[in-house]
């Protein structure tokens, strides 16, 4: 009680440390990560050697395909597993605020997945420098680093939100489903008015398509930025000045996900009597 300010911290260091340790002690973690790394590096080598892709494209793996496996591997069920297993009742008997629990889990997931992505980026950069002398870290490397880290922080927030709602590792399933839906919405949003008459000969179908396409156009960007939010440095600065709208959207999405997660956790009953 005497050191109240110290104990009201948003991030609980003991919990942060134990979350990182939990992954380290997971026997499946190292082999899966090693296989993932080797696959992505192998893919880059094959792209350069056989597909003849441009060197700067082949040097780095896709931002999405580095961030997603890292976050999904570490973060699936980041809160839901604790809720389902009943660990939370012992944890919440300690002087820990529930918002602190949510924020600490999010930060630990973001930091750990970012670290994995940056390690892979460093390996890729070193491999590129060894294979193609003269290639040095440049704006493209920095852009990759920012994109990967921002996607890890963004995806982590999305996973934390879903995990606070759904039990066990169902958050991963929900995210995959939402991801597919958002891709579908994006595809539909690409339909131009002149194409509608070619797609549908039936009047009703045409009317439905005319009604759905504008909605999809409106929803495409918000859903995609919720499912996989990240900051693309090249896009942000392509006009010569920073696009603050994109920066604001990114941070507001993360903030919204975390606020929803905190609100849900604050109302959650953690006694097994409620089950």
């Amino acid at each position: 009680m005497s050191a109240k300010i110290k104990k009201d911290r948003a991030i609980n260091l003991a919990l942060f440390k134990s979350t990182l340790e939990e992954w380290r002690y997971n026997p499946a973690f190292i082999p899966i990560m090693a296989i993932g790394f080797l696959f992505l590096i192998g893919y880059s080598i094959v792209s350069v050697t056989f597909v003849d892709a441009p060197i700067h494209e082949a040097t780095f793996s896709s931002v999405f395909w580095t961030a997603l496996p890292s976050v999904a591997l570490l973060g699936a069920g980041i809160i839901g597993k604790n809720v389902s297993s009943g660990i939370l009742s012992v944890l919440f008997a300690r002087p820990i605020r529930r918002y602190s629990y949510v924020l600490t889990r999010w930060l630990a997931l973001s930091v750990a997945s970012s670290a994995l992505c940056l390690i892979l980026l460093a390996i890729e950069q070193i491999a590129a420098m060894a294979a193609f002398p003269g290639i040095l870290p440049d704006f493209n490397t920095l852009s990759q680093a920012v994109a990967r880290v921002s996607m890890c922080f963004g995806l982590s927030a999305t996973f934390v939100m879903f995990s606070s709602i759904f039990p066990n590792t169902l958050d991963l399933g929900i995210w995959i489903m939402l991801s597919f839906s958002s891709n579908l919405i994006v595809e539909i949003s690409h339909i131009e008015p002149y194409m509608i008459s070619q797609i549908s000969c039936n009047d009703l179908n045409r009317k439905i398509t005319e009604f759905v396409v504008p909605i999809c156009k409106e929803l495409a960007i918000p859903i995609q930025s919720l499912v996989s939010p990240y900051l693309d440095l090249a896009y942000l600065t392509h006009t010569g000045s920073v696009s603050w709208y994109a920066v604001f959207t990114y941070f507001s999405n993360i903030g919204l996900c975390l606020l929803i997660a905190i609100a849900i956790m604050n109302r959650k009953e953690v006694s097994y009597a409620s089950k």
Binding site: M1, K4, E22, Y25, I87, V90, Y272
Partner: peptide, 21 residues
């Protein structure tokens, strides 16, 4: 409230602790 959490101890019936620890 946090001041109360500081002065309580709890042993649940279902011993679901962090099994890796």
């Amino acid at each position: 409230s946090l001041p109360i959490k500081e002065i309580i101890g709890y042993l649940p019936e279902r011993l679901n602790f962090d099994s890796w620890m």
